[in-house]
Design a protein around this nucleic acid. Structure first.
Lengths: 198, 198
DNA sequence: GGGATTATATAGTGGCTAGTATAGAACATG
DNA sequence: CATGTTCTATACTAGCCACTATATAATCCC
């Protein structure tokens, strides 16, 4: 009941995603958003509550998608294959020409002020990725897929650090091929359990 | 001649550095700067021209210092030692408690809008680091310190990506020890020329 | 001391941006 | 059609922030 929406919320979120990805949170003005979505400010506020409200929905959607990618990687049979799929996959994503280069969350809000709720929230989301990988590597170690002296926590940090670093280089123009070379180097001496093949 | 300054420019730049490092460019207000430095806006503008003017001096000073660190690393005898000194040194710097965690330039302005002169400028400064390392590794390859199939460009990207990634993790709270573990893992993959010891 | 120069302080202003007050249009249901 | 509800449009505002107009104070050189 009531007057029907004249725009689609999902489409609007996609358009907002593109803007935030390219120009960051502060760099994307409300007028940019309303113009791109094709609505006026009151409709915007009726639908999303605030600029930050829309941003949160954008990021939640992004992390939901990334979460699926992460889980798909974690379903690989070996720790090495998990890391490989995770890193090559993100190298491709960061350089996908259908959106701005790099990682949406890093492009959006890494330079927020310390203690800014947005920065804290994003750091928390990043940490969840690291923790998920750590748990997967700990499982791999228990399963004998990683050597007994392997450190799941350090390995997970190594993977995520490589990942965020790729996002930075991608933003400043690194190509898919260049990132792939780096992933190959990063995986070169992945610890192998005795007698385990990939 | 003329009335003497009642504050020291160098001290002012140091104080501004601390603020930008912690709260980013947009997150640092002019009033924060004048308050911390202890001057009024007219004195600020007389001395630095603009907020962006001061920011540029801050970044130039930072890169001058980082440039010395980089050159010191490049003076190491082997490519591996260069990478090792560069990465361990930055791991320490990113977690040095005398300033905000992470990298000043990444904390300051990674999320600028695409095409923003500040973002372009900072990307250029980062690239100079990568190019310097690449040249050093190319030299090492010529000198037989790296294997014939080593790729100096990819190695330099691997090192810088690890570095920017560490800066991100440091900003969200990773410890010096945790970063050191990652550096150790990253260097474990380092290619060795036949018969070359570290 | 007089004049030129350089720094400082008070007290603003102009512009920009997220967000709104008010009114009205398009639906559902009785 | 009447009425309540949900959305939209015009036009606006409140606040913030980088920056400045004006006047004054401290130095140097003659």
């Amino acid at each position: 009941m009531g007057r029907p929406r004249e725009f689609e919320v999902d489409k609007a979120i996609e358009k907002a995603t593109a803007l935030f990805w390219r120009n960051g949170y502060d760099g994307t003005l409300l007028s940019d958003l309303t113009k791109k979505i094709g609505i006026t400010p009151p409709s915007f506020y009726f639908a999303f509550g605030s600029k930050e409200g829309l941003f949160k929905r954008v990021i939640e959607r992004y992390f939901a998608e990334q979460g699926e990618t992460l889980e798909a990687a974690c379903r690989e049979l070996t720790a090495r294959a998990v890391a490989s799929r995770f890193l090559y996959g993100h190298a491709d994503m960061f350089t996908d020409r259908s959106h701005a280069p790099g990682c949406l969350t890093m492009n959006s809000a890494l330079p927020c002020a310390e203690g800014d709720p947005l920065r804290v929230w994003l750091a928390g989301l990043r940490e969840r990725v690291r923790v998920r990988l750590r748990d997967r590597f700990a499982y791999a170690k228990d399963a004998g897929d990683l050597p007994g002296d392997a450190d799941p926590d350090a390995l997970a940090r190594f993977v995520t650090i490589t990942n965020w670093g790729m996002a930075v280089e991608a933003q400043s123009g690194a190509s898919r091929k260049q990132l792939h070379q780096v992933v190959t180097l990063a995986l070169a001496t992945w610890p192998q359990a005795e007698g385990a093949g990939e």
